[in-house]
């Protein structure tokens, strides 16, 4: 298996995997612990086989979550949605158990039709119109609705 271990190897148990490996699909790692179920909910379709690891030990984050989806690679829209709720997560594409691509979730400049504006009086919540939010700060992730011009932390947004 060429997948990277989720935990730093230790001398007593160098390659312990805390969430079952997958043959083909996508692994989302380094998810902030409290966002793990949200990420799984966001990514999983009805018939997907999903493995979830919560509160796993992480050298970088202390505790983290991992979500593995078998048989599917993420499209651009799903990656944008992931960027909004878990901007520090890493994504590995798995084919025949091998990591063929690994990257940090790309942060778009603009979130388009990804989340509902948190301002209840924003026109996009009342007209049939696409929501558009510009990223104005990466950490903590903060966006500005280009319609109502209000700034929001990403944590206040509801995904569409």
């Amino acid at each position: 298996m060429s997948l990277e271990p989720l935990d730093p190897p230790t001398s007593s148990n160098p390659r312990v995997r805390q969430v079952e490996a997958i043959l083909h699909g996508t692994v989302i790692d380094h998810i902030p612990g409290h966002m793990t179920l949200k990420v799984a909910n966001l990514l999983a379709r009805e018939n997907d086989q999903v493995s979830i690891g919560m509160n796993l030990r992480s050298a970088r984050m202390g505790r983290k979550g991992v979500v593995k989806i078998s048989g599917r690679e993420l499209d651009a829209r799903t990656l944008s949605r992931l960027a909004l709720i878990a901007p520090s997560a890493s994504v590995s594409i798995i084919r025949d158990t091998k990591v063929v691509q690994k990257f940090i979730v790309p942060m778009p400049k603009l979130f388009e039709d990804i989340a509902r504006c948190a301002n209840p009086n924003c026109v996009t919540n009342h007209e049939r119109w696409t929501s558009r939010m510009e990223v104005i700060n990466a950490d903590p992730l903060t966006v500005c609705c280009i319609y109502c011009e209000r700034n929001f932390p990403a944590t206040e947004l509801v995904l569409l």
Partner: peptide, 10 residues
């Protein structure tokens, strides 16, 4: 003039 924030941008 419109009561909704962002109506003019739309």
């Amino acid at each position: 003039r419109h009561p909704r924030d962002g109506a003019a941008r739309l």
